[in-house]
Amino acid sequence: MQTVIYMVRHGESPKTEGNERTRALTDKGMQDAKIITELLKDEGIDTYISSPYRRAVLTIEEAARSAGKEVLVIEDLKEIVFAGEDKILQDHEVYPLVKKMFAEPESSLPGGESMTIGRERTVAVLKKILKDYKGQKVAIGTHGAVMTLMMGYFDSQYDVEFLFTTSKPDIYRMEFDEDRLIDVTRLWG
């Protein structure tokens, strides 16, 4: 019995307002969320789950609503905490940090978490989703680093180089037989 997971990386989000948890989507991000709704509408998704971060919820919220579903928020699907829960890092700060953290998975900044800890946290959630929603189709509103960590757990080709080829937003359809990844298809772009 196959379970299908749709990893939906959030849309473009401003790094000028709020904090990591509260920042929303740019106008482009909101327009892209409408495209995501169109791309997912015929997929027959049973359940919508998201990171608690507002940008991830907003990216899949309209798709869930149009399917007559609500978005279930799971705290442990949040993005890697790079430098304290609320601190927003600009792209020129975060990209070199992410490269270093993938190369040295135990490293972290003060107040942040390591890739190892983030991977353990998010993969545990994904394994539970695969068990609890066996045979269903589940869309997950997620973030670049944790999406890559979860996908990379099942197939090592999903690494830091893969992460830097993804876009905001992005969608990957992952087919599982039990807890074995059997196929991945990119739906965005």
Rank of each mutant, 00 (worst) to 15 (best):
I36D: 00
G189W: 10
L149E: 06
I36V: 15
P14N: 12
D177V: 11
I171D: 00
R23Q: 13
I80R: 06
P169E: 08
Q157H: 13
I129N: 02
H143T: 01
S50M: 05
F176N: 04
S51Y: 04
I171W: 03
G152A: 08
T26Q: 11
I74N: 02
M1T: 10
N19A: 10
A56P: 01
V146D: 03
I36S: 00
V57T: 12
L149Y: 02
G135K: 11
Y158Q: 05
A24L: 12
V8W: 02
L39N: 05
M30R: 15
G152I: 04
L72S: 09
G135M: 11
S13C: 14
T116D: 11
R65D: 06
G111E: 05
V94S: 10
K134P: 00
R23T: 11
D177W: 12
V4A: 04
L126C: 08
K100P: 00
T142A: 15
R65I: 06
G44P: 04
R54Y: 10
Q31H: 13
A103T: 01
A64S: 08
L126H: 02
E120P: 05
L109G: 05
L39I: 14
Y6R: 09
Y153R: 10
T166R: 05
T3C: 09
M30F: 14
Y53P: 01
